[in-house]
Simulated scan of single mutants.
Amino acid sequence: MPALSRFLRYFMAVGQHGSIRRAADELGISPSAVDRQLLNAEADLGAPLFERLPSGLRLTAAGEVMMAAGRRWQKDLGEVRDQIADLQGLRRGHVQIAIIAALAKGPVPAMIAAIQTRYPGISIGISVLDNDAVRAAIASGEADMGILLDPHSYRDLVVRAFVEVVLGVALPPGHALAARAEVRFSACADSPLIVPAHPLVVSEQLAVLEGATGLSPLRAATCDDSQMIASLVMQGAGLGILTSIDVVTEVAQGRLAFARLSDPILRPLTLALCTASVRTPSHAAAMALGEIEAGFAHLGYGGG
């Protein structure tokens, strides 16, 4: 290591232990070598870094400043080492991903697990948030990337990959409409419905649908969690107004059916993988991003 890093290691060890001898034991060198480094630094700085007391050494005001600088140096050196390791192909680092609750099961967890298998040196943090909170986490830098619905109105995000999803009705497999790929809202408006509430994005689409058709569904329950709506449908409490991503696992397992709502007023929703427009992803984030981008077109959320 450079001479500066040697001095800071010696200095910080003494500052932590309050003793040259104990610091030397930890470093595996002679006390005289540590003492010489401190004396040389104090001579160069023109200020003492420690008070020499009968009970040991205590940092002076100048020493406190140097200790803070040493901690910053340690952090910066760690980041530099991670970047160099990335360049050398060691692929280390941490990636924070924010997703909406509907993605907490099914293909997206499988994609994240595949990243960990391919890049074992990369640790991944996952935040499950509502749609607006995912956007905020990406924009603020709390998340390196995120997956959310309908991000195109946000100028602080860059869409890296996207797939369309549709609004529809989740039904028990034995329901009269279960064999149909698509239905009109009028076909199910007289049935008890589990209605999505804010902050679910589908609640806004349902309001548009009700306004355009003039129909007011029979509300068996109102819920702000898509997984609870799916569970209530499986329990026979009513039909659920959801997107194709909300029930992809249950439909694949035969526990629910899903029929797309074909009313012309409705438009497909966009499920998008996004990063912040003002930041360049780290090496680790870029590798994870590439893996998710590659798998995004195969998510199979089209419904129907």
Rank of each mutant, 00 (worst) to 15 (best):
T117M: 12
P54A: 03
P109T: 06
R71F: 00
A113Q: 12
G121C: 01
Q116N: 09
A110Y: 13
L103Q: 04
A68G: 13
M111S: 13
R135A: 15
E142Q: 14
L149D: 12
R92T: 10
L77R: 04
M66N: 00
G125D: 03
A98Y: 10
Q96G: 04
A102Q: 05
A113I: 08
M111C: 13
G70L: 02
E142W: 06
Q88S: 04
L57S: 06
G78S: 07
G63C: 09
Q116C: 06
A68F: 06
G93P: 01
A136L: 12
G125V: 06
G121P: 02
D82I: 05
N131Q: 03
I147T: 08
A143S: 05
A62L: 09
A69E: 08
G93H: 02
E142C: 09
V108E: 04
T60D: 03
M111F: 14
A85L: 09
A61T: 12
A101I: 10
L90R: 13
Q74G: 02
D144S: 08
L103F: 06
V95L: 06
A114W: 04
V80K: 00
G93K: 00
P120M: 00
M145S: 03
A85G: 12
D86Y: 06
A101V: 05
I115W: 07
G63K: 02
R58W: 08
L59I: 02
L148G: 07
I97N: 04
D130Q: 07
Q83A: 12
G106V: 01
G146V: 05
E142V: 11
G78A: 11
G56I: 11
G56D: 01
I100Y: 07
A113Y: 09
I99L: 12
L90S: 01
A101H: 05
Y154R: 15
S123R: 14
D156S: 12
G141D: 10
G121H: 03
L148F: 08
L148W: 03
I122W: 01
N131C: 03
D150A: 01
K105S: 15
D130M: 10
G106D: 02
I122P: 00
I126W: 03
I138M: 15
L149M: 11
Q116D: 09
P120H: 12
T117S: 15
A102F: 00
V108R: 00
D82T: 09
G121F: 00
A68E: 05
D132L: 12
L53G: 09
I99P: 02
G146M: 05
R155K: 15
S153H: 15
L90A: 10
L57F: 11
Q96R: 07
G146K: 08
T117G: 14
P109G: 06
A104I: 08
D130H: 13
A68K: 03
L149T: 04
A98P: 10
L53I: 07
T117Y: 15
G89K: 01
I99N: 07
L148E: 06
Y119I: 05
A114T: 13
D82H: 08
L57K: 13
